[in-house]
Computed example of a mutant assay.
Amino acid sequence: MALMQESIADGCDVRMVQSRSDMRHFKQLPRRLYAHDPHAVLPLSSFQNFVLDRKHHPFYDGGRGAVAEFFLAFDSATGKPVGRIAAIIDHRHNQLAMQRDPHHELCGHFGFFDCVNSPLVAQKLIDAAAAWLRSQGIKRMLGPASPSQSYDYGLLIEGHHCPHRFLLPYHPAYYAGLLEGCGLSKARDLLSLSGDLQDPRCRKPLERLTERTGTMRTRLAENITIRPIDMRRYRQETDILGEVLNEALMDHFGHSPITGREWRLITDSLKPVVDPKFVLIAEREGSPVGLAIALPDINELIGKLRLRFGFIETLELLVRSWRWRPQCVTIVVMGSTREGNNFAVTPLLIGQLTRNLLDNDVRFVDAHQILEDNDGMLAPVLRHGLVVDRRYRVYQMAL
């Protein structure tokens, strides 16, 4: 990890990404920083390159959904890139926040933060992002969001030794010290949990949970049904999931509403790894009121890829996935609408998903980024055998 330990004796220069060469450096820097980190699993380059495409990716929607500027830090002595950051204004996030609170301060985000272990470089990157956001009338900066909560969100501050699961961010341990040294402070923490379903200390409480929720299902049978998605109607089913997701997360800290086009891009890209037994829709009298989305941890395969470029990378992934039996399933999101909250839909979803996991010989289960104060979701999973093993922090700074 020579680059991570590199000394920036003569300072650094930070400039806005403008040329193709700059953008290439911006995309490639994480590969240099993480090259020898045994815990990091870098995302597929095709996915990462597209989410940085401000002209075509639906998150930005041609500037109507969001705008962003990218910055690179270069070592003044060698000219090598030593850090990167993005400054992002998510219009949909601010519009939703202002609907809830007319006095909401316009906030922006920093994201795609990567840096050598240098307080000087980190400070200049944060200053560049803050200055650009301030020039756009932004009053508060949050992050990291790369580029929003629907993608890589928060900074890993505890649990670096744990497996790097699919759709979760990973960062070197020194990043927290760099950001806090720049004056950023905690806004909110998110927790990830895991369980070994072959360990009786985890399996037995979960089996009891399925029995209790099965009894609840019997009482509510006339009103609530929980079913797997129909892969023959994948686009229609995922459209339903998107609508429920936006409603379920409407009051969730940091949520940015996902447009139909953006959601279809995400769900279409995930279709090859979707197992319908782990993607559930809850309905009350035929109307959707809840969802659960769990996916096989394809980082088990991505971490083994050797040809990390272009379509060759995707081709190698497809070859490796043949006859692959995932060890871990990751629960990406679970929740219910306001109507669903009145009928204990979330506990029913937890119970049914747990039953499906146990019945299909999954070894490990991973629950993604639950807000530390979301007792309604944390309490049942902690009570039934899962343990918190990673913590992610969203930082803030007044501008």
Rank of each mutant, 00 (worst) to 15 (best):
A2G: 15
L3Y: 10
S7A: 14
A9Y: 06
V14W: 08
M23F: 15
F26A: 00
Q28C: 05
R31A: 15
R31F: 12
A35S: 14
H36R: 14
P38V: 07
P38M: 11
L42M: 15
F47L: 14
V51K: 05
D53T: 13
H56C: 13
F59W: 11
Y60P: 01
Y60D: 09
G62H: 08
G65S: 03
D75A: 08
S76Q: 09
A77V: 01
I85C: 04
I85Y: 02
R92W: 05
M98Y: 08
M98N: 03
Q99S: 13
D101K: 14
P102G: 07
H104E: 10
E105G: 08
E105D: 14
C107N: 01
H109P: 02
H109L: 10
D114M: 07
C115R: 02
N117E: 15
L120K: 10
V121P: 04
Q123H: 13
A128Y: 03
A131R: 13
R134I: 05
S135P: 01
S135N: 12
K139I: 00
L142S: 04
A145E: 01
S146Q: 04
S150E: 06
Y153W: 15
P163G: 06
L167F: 12
P169C: 11
Y174L: 03
L178N: 02
L178P: 05
C182Y: 12
L184E: 01
L184P: 03
S185G: 09
S192K: 00
S194I: 04
G195N: 04
D196R: 08
L197G: 06
P200D: 06
C202V: 13
R203W: 00
P205W: 01
E207Y: 04
L209D: 06
R212G: 01
T215M: 12
T215W: 13
M216P: 10
T218L: 12
R219W: 10
N223F: 11
N223H: 09
I224E: 02
R227K: 09
Q236T: 07
E237H: 00
D239L: 05
V244F: 05
L245D: 00
N246G: 07
E247L: 12
A248I: 08
H252S: 11
F253A: 03
H255P: 00
E262G: 01
E262V: 05
W263L: 15
D268E: 14
S269N: 15
L270T: 10
L270P: 09
V273D: 02
V274C: 13
L280E: 02
G286K: 05
V289C: 02
L295G: 00
P296E: 11
D297Y: 06
L301R: 03
G303E: 10
G303P: 03
R306L: 13
F311D: 11
F311I: 13
L317G: 10
L318R: 14
L318S: 12
R320H: 06
W322R: 14
V329I: 15
V333P: 01
P347K: 11
I350Y: 03
G351Y: 01
T354R: 02
R355Y: 02
D359F: 00
N360I: 01
D361R: 08
A367S: 04
I370W: 04
D375S: 11
D375K: 11
G376D: 07
M377G: 11
M377K: 02
L378I: 13
V381R: 02
R383D: 14
H384K: 02
G385F: 01
L386T: 01
V387I: 14
V387M: 10
R390M: 12
V394E: 06
